[in-house]
Design a protein around this nucleic acid. Structure first.
Lengths: 184, 184
DNA sequence: TGTACATCAGTGAACGCGCGTTCACTGATGTAC
DNA sequence: TGTACATCAGTGAACGCGCGTTCACTGATGTAC
């Protein structure tokens, strides 16, 4: 028979996710590089020493954020893109950008900040995730790369817009992506 | 008669520039948000308390970096751009990006990192500087904005490239900028 | 089923250390007359 | 020109505080038989 995940394992996973969420939220407010282990533990309401039951150090939790949060976000963003249909793809992507910003602003801030940030151990894996997205967008590597640049700029821009300005940003983004993806 | 700048003033300015350079260099290595006042003073070889003779706090020195270093860099980048000639402008800009990365990599890292970063007091003035650059690039606001996004992506990308790969990046960037600026 | 043992997430105390900031002081330079 | 005073960049001592990390321990849960 299949054994259920034990209560112990479930509780541990729950605490782990709380830590990841706390790190994400604090990153969005003052940057991952400035986070402290005690600060994250405090936000997750556990003792500082308990942090070590889940992650080796702050580098470890940073890598986990990229793999477990940014990765899925970008895969979802790439869903529904048809490399053969520039207009449809632009529409899907522009909407996806705005949806991501509304649903997970802290995660989006983490992505755009750390992909350009000073910490190589975050920048490099984030670049890897973005390359994976690029291959899903267009057959030409240059075009795909350019589209990703436009997407990232749209994400960063939308983050700082008031909700009332976001519709206009979605339209702008759609036009920009159409131009890039339909370019021959 | 005009009075010379006194020795005192000259020496103070020299120390001030050393502090700014130290802050820039340390920002590039682990992010402005994580900098400490004592850390910057140490790198500038002055006592921690002397920092206060030049800046009120870390926020103050951050703003000075944007105004006194990033501003001039972007103005130089915009020099020689002719809004009426997409090809010529793309060439000048692509070359300018690569030159900036080679001549002042730490400043470029500061720019791309903090313009997307979590610290609003840096992000906002950096956005202002970038808007000023945009107006110099093209008559259409949307096109200019897109060109700036491509420029920033090129800066971030070139920073992480080996010198041998940078010529190819300049060509790619030139094609991308030409497409964006010549779009009708 | 009951019992003895193993596992391990969470903890509090403790450590040495670097932090930002204040304070009073020094001494070279600048100003007034 | 000389003299008395003002300015102020730089400093070292001191402060209370939060940091990352270690350690030994607790107690609930899981496993073996």
């Amino acid at each position: 028979v299949l054994r259920d995940r034990s209560q112990k394992q479930e509780e541990k996973e729950r605490v782990r996710l709380t830590l990841l969420g706390a790190a994400l939220s604090l990153s969005a407010s003052h940057g991952f590089a400035s986070l402290g282990l005690r600060e994250v533990a405090r936000a997750a309401q556990i003792a500082p020493t308990s942090f070590y039951r889940h992650f080796a150090d702050m580098v470890d939790i940073g890598r986990a954020l990229v793999e477990e949060y940014v990765g899925p976000l970008l895969r979802e963003l790439g869903h529904g893109v048809d490399p053969g249909d520039a207009h449809a793809s632009a529409l899907v992507l522009a909407q996806g950008v705005l949806t991501a910003v509304e649903a997970q602003p802290e995660l989006v801030r983490f992505l755009v900040a750390e992909r350009a940030g000073a910490l190589e151990f975050l920048r490099k894996p984030l670049d890897g995730e973005l390359r994976a997205l690029a291959t899903a967008l267009h057959g030409s590597a240059d075009t795909a790369q350019l589209a990703v640049a436009v997407l990232l700029d749209g994400l960063a821009r939308a983050l700082d817009l008031a909700p009332s300005e976001r519709n206009a940003e979605r339209e702008r983004l759609m036009r920009a992506l159409t131009m890039v993806l339909a370019h021959d």
